[in-house]
Design a protein around this nucleic acid. Structure first.
Lengths: 321, 321
DNA sequence: GCGCAGAAGTTAATCGATTACACACCTATG
DNA sequence: CATAGGTGTGTAATCGATTAACTTCTGCGC
């Protein structure tokens, strides 16, 4: 920057003013500075700028698993929204581990992100408190924690789950296997609670860990226990469960009915296509980014609750269109 | 930091020494400083540190599309490898757009990443030159550019493609549709060249853009043209092509043989399971990260060429296991 | 011709760390 | 006992930007 100033025959203050579009500099001075910048190929040092202004124009996003397309879509949406407001997003991959999550959150805070979006790995509010104590704007996404005091953006699947339960029971299923998320995540618990309540006494719940492998294991167990229908609470576990069903040579929906929470582009390609509860991932991501930006700008956004929708495709034996 | 120093009754220099594990400070002083840090909940400002040391311990990774599981896996692998060496990764999503790619690269450079991993959207070497001119370590991943002078990490599918071609021709196909990537990407061109050469004259090539929609369109066109086999050069376009095949009610492999470049966890679940050419994504990501770290540490890593493998599953009419 | 307002630009402090150099003190040595 | 060498800390410069406060210049009114 000093070089540029010298080259243009002005002070660094003037260069800075040109860079930041201040009113002061003469069009002529501005021209000279821009020419010098061009000539020297100067690029401002964002670190120094941020250090001085205490603003990085960056949001942190800590998600549970990049390989889960659900989170990948969310990440994409967050990024789009953030970019359109002149912000960058740094993504941290917690890998469903509370410890790695904490590490990432701290790293991002150390780098002074202007705000943080978090899909918490567990219910435990201590990390959230730590962030809030640091005064960093925080929005929770997809999952919440006990006694959260910050805005939360999530999808509500109650209606869809209830409708699904009615259909399954209506179709005469009396042993319905539920592959749930970990009991110490809000989504793991809430979805399961709603579904089991709606199902009355016919639900058999096995908890997985939102990974494919746990889906196969849970499916194996539930099928052994005589389940005639399987509802899986996440797409990765759904993948695992499907593998197990195939491996046993069972026919959907004849031998076993099947539904998954989370839609995926390839579910319609299966035979039969898979009935799902689709979450509005893109809207979730965008809404979360918007809430966070609002918080950064000193406003107090409300919680956002979007609705997940039941998409019937045939894997539960329903009439196809 | 000043507060911590005051609290512990030492100078900031000593605090810094404790923080950075220098030999100097007495165990007793060290204790006092650590206590003060603990008590005040102090966290060092990474921006200031980086400004002073000119090292951010951060790698930039610019990929074409986060929603493409192929790149998501790579990103994951890069991140793992980087973390194990004490580095963070900032991911930029270029969305297959050269313009957005350039924007991201510049943003990352402005933030002074220690090195950059790039999956270039096009062949055009100008962006690569710009980075090199800035003296920032750079490694290309998956794709290369014309006249690249930096290390490149990619998968070689020649053998697998040739083997696949032999099988298709051997099975009597005489109109084989190829859905290729854009001709201005190295992977788009090279894979297609190898395959068409191996197929002799029976290939009909349509170029897509690595997106699902273009896969359906290309498939439609090729099927209309009487193709009895379809080879798709990327999993997203594969998804689109499969949708088109399903929509027309065609049976794989009876009506049409089908194979995809890139494996996906759900391909084995289709009926029949999809024959693929699997790329070693995790190894690619790790190798790229390692090469970049080597470059950062002043070594000159060689190009890495991993091999993609043909996985026969039945969708080309081959005998199943 | 004088004073003064307003514009354009400069000087220098600042953000929060790192680190070369200086300094004080302590021991071992000839 | 003077001196050399080592050890633990403090002082202050530095990284590259922003910006408050100040200076200089211009033009205008009376």
């Amino acid at each position: 920057m000093k070089d540029v100033a010298q080259h243009a025959g002005v002070s660094t203050a003037t260069v800075s003013r040109v860079l930041n579009g201040h009113a002061a500099p003469t069009p002529e001075t501005r021209e000279r500075v821009l020419a010098a910048i061009e000539e020297l190929g100067y690029r401002p040092n964002a670190l120094a700028r941020s250090l001085r202004t205490t603003s990085t124009q960056t949001l942190g996003l800590v998600i549970s698993d990049l390989l889960n397309p659900f989170f990948a879509e969310i990440a994409r949406a967050v990024e789009d929204e953030a970019r359109s407001h002149g912000y960058c997003v740094v993504i941290g991959n917690a890998d469903e581990s509370a410890e790695q999550e904490a590490t990432y959150v701290r790293t991002l805070l150390d780098r002074r992100v202007d705000g943080l979006l978090l899909c918490p790995a567990t219910d435990d509010p201590s990390l959230v408190r730590e962030v809030s104590a640091g005064g960093v704007p925080l929005v929770l996404l997809d999952r919440t924690v006990r006694g959260a005091t910050c805005p939360v953006v999530r999808a509500d699947g109650s209606e869809a789950l209830t409708a699904l339960a009615r259909r399954l029971v209506g179709a005469g299923h009396s042993r319905i296997g539920v592959i749930a998320g970990p009991p110490d995540t809000s989504t793991g618990r809430e979805r399961t609670d709603v579904l089991t309540t709606a199902l009355g006494g016919v639900a058999h719940v096995v908890h997985g860990d939102f990974r494919q492998e746990s889906g196969s294991q849970a499916a194996a167990k539930l099928i052994d226990d005589g389940a005639t229908a399987l509802v899986v609470m996440d797409n990765l576990m759904g993948l695992g469960a499907l593998g197990e069903i195939r491996a046993r040579g069972l026919q959907i929906p004849h031998d076993i009915a099947f539904a998954v929470f989370d839609d995926q582009p390839w579910f319609p390609l299966l035979d039969p296509p898979i009935t799902v509860i689709a979450q509005p991932t893109v809207e979730m991501g965008r809404a979360a980014a918007r809430s966070l930006l609002a918080l950064i700008n000193g406003r107090q956004p409300d919680d956002v609750r979007l609705t997940a929708k039941l998409v019937l495709r045939g894997s539960c034996g329903e009439a196809e269109l």
